[in-house]
């Protein structure tokens, strides 16, 4: 009996350890990643209709906010990445934009000529690689994203318009770049950072983190004129 208990408890601990070893991943994030990797068939012909007519057509079809399936997209298409990779992908809050604008035609500006296809296709179905010789007027996916986003953000004076407003910088993996011994002390670690980021070290010396000073009313004799701080008397007291 005792043997059995020991065996089962051991087994359960093992199972728990195994499941702990697996990193938890956000399911919607994984779904967005998978979706971003997809390549869809290029739509050659689109229906060139008036914007207002298209709006009416969408209203008549009864397309509403409930039809927005995905909360957000990761704009990380291999179409863009195979040319260059300077910035991290943008997380585009699709449903939020849809709710805010409440007009699908603002972004889904044309529909495929083939009536059997979805009214609101994804961007990368029409906009793929840049400078397609057969469709010179069709801009590439990257330009389509940038033109659509920044133009609207500028017009509405709402939303980011700079590079890092939407993108994270593509920081290289520091695993191989940082070279430190196992038992490095604080000074060695700082020196290792400064090896490449020396300007960041210089900048730090000009910030309030290094130069702060101010009154310290709760210290000796409540003298308000005492100027404590890293810029004066204190040492490493954050």
């Amino acid at each position: 009996m005792i043997k059995k208990i020991i065996f089962y408890s051991g087994f359960m601990i093992l199972v728990a350890a195994l499941s702990m070893a697996q990193v938890w991943k956000a399911p919607d994030q994984e779904k967005a990643k998978e979706r971003a990797k997809e390549r869809v068939k290029f739509i050659k012909d689109y229906k060139d209709e008036d914007n207002i007519l298209r709006k009416i057509a969408l209203i008549e079809k009864g397309i509403s906010l409930d039809d927005v399936k995905n909360n957000y997209f990761l704009l990380d298409s291999p179409i863009i990445k195979e040319r260059e990779d300077h910035y991290g992908p943008v997380r585009f809050a699709h449903k939020r934009h849809a709710a805010l604008i409440n007009d699908c035609t603002e972004c889904h500006h044309y529909r495929p000529k083939d009536e059997s296809m979805l009214e609101t296709t994804r961007c990368s179905a029409c906009h793929q690689d840049s400078f397609n010789a057969d469709h010179p007027e069709r801009i590439g996916l990257k330009a389509a994203f940038h033109q659509q986003c920044t133009e609207c953000h500028q017009e509405e004076q709402n939303g980011p318009v700079t590079c890092t407003g939407c993108h994270l910088k593509n920081v290289p993996d520091h695993k191989d770049l940082v070279k430190l011994a196992d038992n490095s002390d604080a000074f060695q670690v700082t020196a290792e950072c400064l090896r490449c980021h020396d300007q960041a070290g210089e900048d730090m010396l000009k910030t309030a983190h290094w130069n702060w000073r101010g009154p310290s009313p709760y210290t000796v004799k409540h003298r308000k004129d005492v100027q404590h701080g890293k810029g004066t008397t204190a040492l490493n007291n954050y």
Binding site: R83, S130, P136, K142, A143, H146
Partner: peptide, 16 residues
Amino acid sequence: LPGCATICPVEAITFG
């Protein structure tokens, strides 16, 4: 493609 046309984020430069 030329370097500048590849990188242009808004396709202000069209190569062809």
